[in-house]
């Protein structure tokens, strides 16, 4: 297996494309061990993913539970080590960083975690939660830290600041807690924010408030944003491009309107069909949903990983051969054999 990978990855060199972030042929495989020792296979959480992100750009990564979204993000944050492939962020190559370099790398990427309720330490005040990253990153002057904390709280509209700064997380509403999480992600003035399901735990009306806040921050700070979600209906409100992820792979990538109006991958079509709009007519019709469930990431199917569920399967091809990336429409890429002649 490692040999095949080696061969696959030979062409792995980075050219300077002016991108802020380059993800190249990233493979994040978790080793499965039997009884704590003895190799029992790999969980292929991220399986050959490549993309680029320019400064100030926003992309959305969409996919179902367990498809590898969080694993991809954690790797970009330097929290997982890829088994193959590499990442270059702001001129720093992840695989070549020493401890000090790693610290600088991490300080330039802000992280908004999946679960706002579990993200904040319950026994720390908002002030100490925001103070911590500053102290760790060597901002020694307490006055300077205080000023930065107040500034970032204003930016996420936790104001008047004095009403919030000494409070503890449980005293805040869900939306306010999520503002604190965003403030913490912003405090070191990152160039990139990774937001992992930042609104999925929140009520509809609060959700909009947080999405708008993220959008404003992105524009005013020229931030690059990676927005991870399982909900296609929220993506167009602030990302330019969508990556649709299925079982560790990016099945399709294109700008938002292309994905919504001209989906090329059968899985993307299924996602679009399954997503509801509030409409009384829905109750009178059945939805067409592909049978089955996403495949095992330990023993993925041969060929296209969607073939066991795909209504458009080309027998003898899809079930045998891994589809490469096709580009039937300029800048609209998909891993699907249906587009082989494009």
């Amino acid at each position: 297996m490692a040999e095949i990978l080696e061969k696959k990855l030979k062409d792995q060199d980075f050219s300077d494309t002016g991108a802020l972030l380059q993800v190249k042929r990233l493979h994040v495989w978790f080793e499965l061990r039997r009884f704590g020792f003895g190799h029992a296979g790999y969980v292929r959480a991220v399986d050959d993913v490549s993309f680029e992100l320019k400064a100030g750009q926003a992309i959305a990564v969409v996919g179902e539970s367990g498809c590898g979204k969080t694993s991809l993000m954690k790797t970009i944050l330097g929290l997982n080590t890829p088994i193959k492939g590499d990442i270059i962020f702001d001129g720093m190559k992840l695989s070549e960083l020493d401890r000090k370099g790693m610290m600088e790398y991490r300080s330039k990427i802000g992280f908004v975690q999946q679960d706002p309720y579990g993200a904040l330490p319950p026994f720390m005040s908002i002030r100490s939660i925001l103070d911590e990253p500053l102290i760790i990153n060597g901002v020694k002057d307490p006055k300077e830290r205080n000023e930065r904390i107040r500034q970032v709280m204003e930016e996420v509209r936790l104001s008047p600041v004095d009403d919030f700064i000494e409070k503890f997380p449980h005293m805040l509403s869900g939306g306010q807690q999520q503002r604190v999480v965003i403030a913490r992600a912003m405090i070191l003035e990152p160039k990139l924010i990774v937001a992992d399901e930042p609104v999925s735990m929140l009520d509809a009306s609060v959700r909009v408030e947080i999405l708008k806040l993220l959008e404003n921050l992105q524009k005013s700070h020229n931030l690059a944003v990676i927005y991870i979600t399982h909900d296609l209906s929220t993506v167009r409100y602030f990302s330019e491009r969508i990556f649709v992820m299925y079982a560790g792979k990016v099945a399709e990538k294109a700008v938002v309107d292309e994905i919504l109006n001209n989906p090329l991958h059968p899985y993307t079509e299924a996602l679009l069909t399954a997503t509801s709009e509030p409409d009384a007519a829905n109750a009178r019709i059945y939805k067409e949903v592909p049978p089955g469930e996403p495949p095992s990431l330990v023993n993925p199917p041969t060929g296209c990983n969607y073939h066991p569920r795909c209504p458009k399967i080309i027998e003898g091809l899809c079930d045998l051969e891994d589809p490469p990336e096709f580009e039937p429409v300029p800048n609209h890429l998909t891993l699907c054999w249906l587009h082989k002649d494009a």
């Binding site: 009306s205 959700r207 209906s233 409100y237 709009e277 009384a280």
Partner: peptide, 30 residues
């Protein structure tokens, strides 16, 4: 039918305006 096309209570109206839609480009409210 009536509710989803035209809710009456101001809270219900605001709530409906906060629902993200797949297509179209109306502003979301909170």
């Amino acid at each position: 039918e009536s509710f989803f096309s035209a809710p009456l209570h101001p809270y219900a109206q605001k709530l409906m305006a906060s629902v993200p839609r797949l297509r179209g480009d109306q502003e979301l409210e909170f």
